[in-house]
Nucleic acid binder design. Structure first.
Lengths: 181, 181
DNA sequence: ACCTGAACACCGTTCAAGT
DNA sequence: ACCTGAACACCGTTCAAGT
C-alpha cells in the first residue's frame, strides 16, 4: 500500500533524508547512496528529495556533517589532559567514526566541510594545537595536518592497520613538538 | 563518417583506452570519465571497451597507474642527495602530478595501487626511508606516512596551499628524524 | 579476438501539474 | 510548500551475433 496522494504529509524533514542516506551508507556502501534509493526508503518520489536539498552534493555534505557531529568535540577541550593526549584522542575518535561507515571518508574528502559540527571540531583541534605552544598560524597548519593524517590514513588503508596509523600520528606529533619554542 | 564494420581494426590497444581516459580526466574532471565517453573518443561502441578491460574499476586503476608512472622514480634514488632532500623531492613530484589532473587523487585513494609503476615508486620511497636510518618495518611505515600526507593534502585542499603542504611535510620528516637511532 | 546493436537496470535532475 | 508522474539525458554492463 503506497500512498499516492500529493501535497504535504508533514512526516518528513531534512533529518529524515539524512537518516535514510546514513542507513544506505551503512548497509550498501558509499557508491550505493542514491537520491532514488533515499526516496524509496523514506517513501516519496525521487524528485521530492529536491524539496529538502538543492542537489545530491548537498545531501552528501549533510551526511558528512552528520558524521563529524557524532564525535563529541567537548570531550577534548580543557586542560584536564595534555595537548598530546587530547590530539591522540580526537584523531582516534574521528578515525573510529569513519571506519564504521565504509566509504564515508570519501564524502569528507569531497564535500567542503563548512557545517557547524565540522567548524566546532576544527576549533577544538585548533585549541589543542594552541595549547601545544604554537602560535595561531602554526596551530592552524598543525590542525590541518592532523586532519590530513586521519582522513588520508582511513582512505588509504583497506584493513584496520591501527599500528600504522598510530606510528604516523606519533611521528607527526613529535614533529609538531619539536617545532614549539 | 562512422565506421560500422565489425571485427578487429588493429587500431586500438589498452594504451589507447587509457589515453582517452586521461584526456577526459584532464578536460572534464574525474566524475566525467565514463566508459561511454572513452568509447566515443576512441571511436568504438561502449561495450567494445570490455574487450580491453574487465570493468570500469580496472580502467580507473590503469589510469592511476599511468599517473604515478609519470613521476620518474629513478630521479630520487642513490646517495647523491640526502634522504631528506629526496623525500621532499618525491613528495613534491607526486603532488605536482596530481595537481594538474583535477580529481585524480580520488582515483589513487580508491584504486588499490598494485601496478608496476606504483610498486617501483613505493620501493624508491622505502629506500629513502631506509637511508634515513630506519629499520625495515619503520621504513615501510614512514613510506606509507609520506604517501598519506601527499594524497591527503591534495585531496583535502582546493586551492594551491603549497605552504601548508610543505609545513606539514617538514614536521613529518622532523618526527621521522627524531625516531632514528 | 574484436567489434556492433540492442537491451537491462539503473542514475540525477527538470518540468508541469495536483493539493 | 510538498508532493506525483513523466520525461530527459545520461550511466555500467550483458547478451547475441557478425567478421
Amino acid at each position: 500500500m503506497v500512498d499516492t496522494r500529493r501535497g504535504p504529509r508533514r512526516t518528513l524533514s531534512e533529518q529524515a533524508i539524512l537518516d535514510a542516506a546514513l542507513a544506505l551508507l551503512a548497509e550498501l556502501g558509499a557508491d550505493r547512496v542514491s537520491i532514488r534509493g533515499i526516496a524509496t526508503r523514506v517513501g516519496i518520489a525521487p524528485n521530492a528529495v529536491y524539496t529538502y536539498f538543492p542537489d545530491k552534493a548537498a545531501v552528501l555534505a549533510g551526511v558528512a556533517e552528520q558524521l563529524v557531529g557524532r564525535v563529541d568535540a567537548a570531550r577534548f577541550t580543557g586542560p584536564a589532559r595534555s595537548w598530546r593526549e587530547r590530539a591522540h584522542a580526537v584523531a582516534d575518535a574521528l578515525r573510529a567514526e569513519l571506519l564504521v561507515h565504509p566509504g564515508a571518508v570519501h564524502l569528507l574528502l569531497t564535500s567542503p566541510m563548512t557545517g557547524e559540527h565540522a567548524t566546532t571540531l576544527g576549533a577544538t583541534v585548533l585549541a589543542i594545537m594552541t595549547d601545544a605552544g604554537l602560535d595561531h598560524e602554526d596551530a592552524a597548519r598543525a590542525a590541518h595536518l592532523l586532519n590530513v593524517h586521519v582522513l588520508g590514513s582511513v582512505a588509504l588503508t583497506t584493513d584496520g592497520a591501527d599500528d600504522q596509523f598510530r606510528w604516523g600520528l606519533d611521528r607527526l606529533l613529535d614533529g609538531i613538538t619539536a617545532h614549539t619554542p
